[in-house]
Amino acid sequence: MLDAVLLVLREVLEAALFVAILLALGRKLGMRGAWVWPALLIGLTGSWLLSAQAAAIADAFDGSGAEVLNALLFALAIGCFIIINWLLSDELWDPQQPHSTASQPPRPILDSLFGVIVAASMAREGSEVWIYFSAFGGQPDALLGSLMGGLIGTGLGVSIGVLVYYLFDFQPRRWFLPIYMGLATLVAGGLSMQLARQLMQMGWLDSGRPIWDSGWIVDERGWMGQFLNAAFGYDANPDATQLTCYVVVVLLVLAGIPLRRWRQRVQMEALG
């Protein structure tokens, strides 16, 4: 049962954290959070479909179908985080001043981007949970124990998500936006390292020697390591390819800030 608690907690934590920070962001922007329930429903359905088709998916692309799919889902989430940060860059420079409706990030687009991030995360991580439970099909007692463990793991993951949500919700708007953008940058960077790992696992990229090993500071097996892995894709021994992906994505996420600032200045100068 303890195995089930840990496995499900690990899989649930990423989506719970994504929901928490995106819901908190939406509230600061005056959004109602209408995206949450459809995203959870699509994510749950998607995870079940992926688990039901797991064997066929794994067989595709010469045995690398699962990695291709995971890489696409990682890329989708990274793209959404980049677009959200770019859209928020104007707000960052002047968070106190309410912008005209025309200059505010378009809410339906933000709703969709939030929803895609959460649904992609749930589909990717949740499919493993369904597959795990399917292993206990012929053993009712073991299935019951693992389901109980799964419920506890889900409860723990959701509780951590709720805690993180209120932690952010209490922040004043002028502090929250820079904090969110910093976190989103780290999250997108972490997702890019996981994307690189998929490409290395399927042999499209070569692995290299680890640049460092921070396992003696934060062990990936420990609670802190698991939490940092779920939230920021923490990897104790990344190689050069992963770090290159990380730097490129971080630069892409941050590029919106100076570009939007520059555009604002040009517009101000044009107005005289």
Binding site: A58, D62, G63, A66, A135, Q201, G203, S207
Partner: peptide, 19 residues
């Protein structure tokens, strides 16, 4: 740095190294 689900009765391909 590898993680892969392998369904019952199937074979998974995983590239590792150079190590």
């Amino acid at each position: 740095n590898r993680e892969k689900v392998i369904m019952g009765g199937t074979t998974a391909t995983i590239y590792i190294g150079p190590l």
